[in-house]
């Protein structure tokens, strides 16, 4: 926490850098999925999407500069969603 009760101002340059990163990741996912990788395609596409989502959460949604409680809450919700997906698939794969 570098902000002692004061609001942290994210510089314009950071936003532009993050956008460039997001666009590069988008281009990468379009390029990678156009090659035939079989079942790996879904994994790669989802990993790249997760990387993009984290960039948006951390920088655009200010998680990095806000109170740690927000990050903990987001992590908890994401963990819940992933758990539900895993449990549902365990059910479908082994029934």
């Amino acid at each position: 926490m570098e902000n002692n009760g004061k609001h942290h101002i994210v510089p314009y340059k950071t936003h532009i850098t993050v956008l460039l990163g997001l666009i590069i990741l988008t281009a990468l996912s379009v390029a990678v999925t156009s090659i035939e990788l079989g079942p790996l395609t879904v994994t790669v596409a989802l990993l790249l999407a997760t990387a993009k989502a984290l960039l948006v959460l951390i920088y655009f949604m200010h998680l990095r500069f806000d109170n740690i409680i927000y990050s903990i809450m987001v992590a908890f919700v994401m963990f819940s969603i992933i758990s539900i997906i895993v449990i549902t698939f365990l059910d479908y794969l082994f029934r």
């Binding site: 988008t26 596409a45 989502a53």
Partner: peptide, 23 residues
């Protein structure tokens, strides 16, 4: 409002590969 708009962006980040890319 910014947070809401980023959420809309977040959802699209997952919709896009699942519907358009993974073919």
């Amino acid at each position: 409002t910014g947070l809401y708009w980023h959420l809309v962006d977040l959802i699209w980040i997952f919709l896009f590969p699942l519907f358009y890319l993974v073919t």
